[in-house]
Design a protein around this nucleic acid. Structure first.
Lengths: 354, 354
DNA sequence: TCTATATTCGTGTACGTTAACGAAAATGAT
DNA sequence: ATCATTTTCGTTAACGTACACGAATATAGA
């Protein structure tokens, strides 16, 4: 009926006493340093095993002056989108949590629209010597250039938010884009009847790079390949992210034949929501991405029906912890850690946690 | 561009130096013990705030011989339903995480179908002296009886999974039942067209007690009150939980006029799924609760369309941590901590985390 | 055998905090 | 003013481990 876990209370002193040596020698054995006779080492080792000795983490960290320096390279949260605030929060939170364990985390921000800043920050990072790096590899070529140097210096790195699958980093932590598109398609299939139409909207300045969106679209289309139906899929790419451009492009795309559902492949869905509201088209179902204030606003007002979100904050947290676990207790880290795909509605956004 | 968190190289010593007092005094104000003049206390407090001093948890735990004993009182995971395994896991996980901080967690299990076991375990707990208690107040009267005694002994307690709103415990951590029913209704509204029918199914032995289910039903119906439509809501209560009983009751309830959607108000949804499959009624949409193996099975096979889940494991984890935070750093704990309401489909169950 | 060098080991201090003990200062009573 | 109390505060020894320093012992070379 009761479930108690007994804690152990033996320390180096007790081991030393039983082995007839000093705690210094025990310490040497424990951290397998040099300078202890084989015979002695074996005796101590035996007692350690016998007592099932577990070093006291607290005392160890307190006494050890070994520090762990981590670097983070992510986009700055621009005025354009606050998305990166969330991962940043997670990173800060994780950093605070392991600060007492001698870990420092330096964060370098680059401009999402300026490759040069990425390269510059990356160079800064390489100058200092960090023992682990967490980065968002937004620019493929520049990122590979950077990770190549990391590998040369034997610095482990973790990708966050987007992956470069050809690169063998320690881990990728982020969304499963394809699957989230697939999920969106399934969700939308519930919203539509025969012969209705869905419009895919990609809003992004650099579409070629952000195959982010394209992966989602792939997943989306894959669903309908797996579940054939006679609904129609239309699509429009919008390269200008300001409202006026989006509005005119959207107006054209919708034309005289309004779709029944619109699927926006990223967090810009609020912009579309604004247009639908202004155009009196709120009967069109709207689905998009990310728990951002402006999106929640339209969600509350039933303009947006669903938001899909993949715990950006937790991504940051897990990224730091992956490096920490790997560097301190040599933990085995999964190569790909996909975040849950959360579905947010106006009923559950209140208690949603990033 | 860089965001360094200045590692707190400040300790009591530095504070003492700046305040012109000894570390003993600093310690006294930190742990707000008695025996320090108001003027001194304020000065020290000021410096602490100014330096944003964060005590080193390692050193603190190492030096302090204070132990914290917590008790947990929850239902045993019966063969009937493995639901309580999840909170239990969360509790164990939290316990393991803070074990090095001198916290022990004793878990007492009672039989969900036997009030006497609850009372007996509660009495055992009161005999020892725990400094904090986490409990699932399944039996209202017995629970209130218990918490009354806890209050008399000034032992803080936290409710998990279900609340007694009239009781002023430290916190309630669990689902928002009403809201999850409301969400289910919204979800279902997407699945139905005009004049279609939805069947609410409550499967539970003791319906009067488990107003769990009734709260969900309330939320469900509230949605349709707020959003009038001409869909029809039917309902059936099933008091026997074995498959045969459920089958016959279901057969009767469905009758010659099958509903278009079935909403099962708890984790028994797999049983309904089995019936639908056997009866060749899988075209009926099915929604229910909880991330259990058998439910996931039907979800995968598209018999169940949606599962609603409220992170049972995290409930246990947060429950323990709430007590810990409150008792160690006197943290302010929110009175009600509703868990997120997660929507699980066959696309996202793989990466779902309880 | 004696010194020179290497190997093995013990001692002591430090890490940042807690808490017991007792000294100093303030207060109160006579 | 004196003594007894109380309040305020400083000193110090832990907690369990890491690591530098140097002492003791063993090994090698002459």
């Amino acid at each position: 009926m009761k479930d108690t876990k007994e804690a152990a209370l033996v320390g180096v002193k007790e081991i030393a006493r039983r082995a007839n040596v000093s705690i210094g020698t025990v310490d040497r054995v424990l951290n397998n340093r040099t300078g202890v006779a084989d015979k002695t080492r074996e005796k101590v080792l035996g007692i350690i095993k016998e007592l099932d000795y577990q070093p006291n983490i607290m005392a160890r960290r307190l006494a050890s002056k070994r520090l762990l320096h981590l670097a983070v390279l992510i986009p700055a949260a621009s005025g354009e989108t606050g998305y990166w605030n969330a991962p940043l929060n997670g990173i800060r939170q994780a950093a605070a949590g392991i600060r007492d364990f001698g870990v420092t985390v330096d964060i370098y921000f680059f401009d999402q629209n300026d490759k040069a800043t990425f390269t510059a920050r990356a160079a800064e990072i390489l100058k200092k010597d960090y023992q682990g790096i967490l980065l968002a590899p937004m620019f493929e070529e520049e990122s590979l250039n950077f990770t190549k140097k990391c590998k040369a210096k034997k610095i482990p790195f973790v990708f966050i938010n987007s992956d470069i699958e050809t690169e063998t980093g320690l881990s990728y932590i982020g969304p499963d884009l394809y699957q989230s598109g697939y999920l969106a398609a399934h969700l939308i299939s519930y919203l539509m009847r025969e012969e209705q139409q869905v419009l895919i909207v990609n809003i992004s300045r650099e579409m070629d790079l952000h195959h982010h969106l394209l992966r989602k679209e792939e997943g989306f289309r894959a669903y309908y390949k797996a579940h054939p139906s006679d609904i129609q899929i239309r699509k429009t790419d919008i390269r200008q992210t300001d409202y006026k451009s989006v509005k005119s492009k959207l107006h054209k795309a919708i034309g005289k034949m309004p779709p029944d559902v619109i699927f926006v492949t990223n967090s810009r869905v609020a912009t579309v929501g604004r247009y639908l509201e202004e155009a009196g088209l709120t009967h069109i179902r709207l689905i998009g991405y990310d728990f951002l204030a402006e999106n929640i606003d339209y969600l509350k007002r039933s303009v947006i029906d669903f938001l899909i979100c993949q715990k950006p904050q937790e991504q940051g947290h897990k990224g730091i912890m992956a490096l920490y676990d790997h560097l301190t207790h040599a933990a085995v880290i999964e190569r790909q850690q996909y975040m849950p795909i959360d579905i947010i509605t106006r009923e559950n956004y209140l208690n949603y946690r990033n």
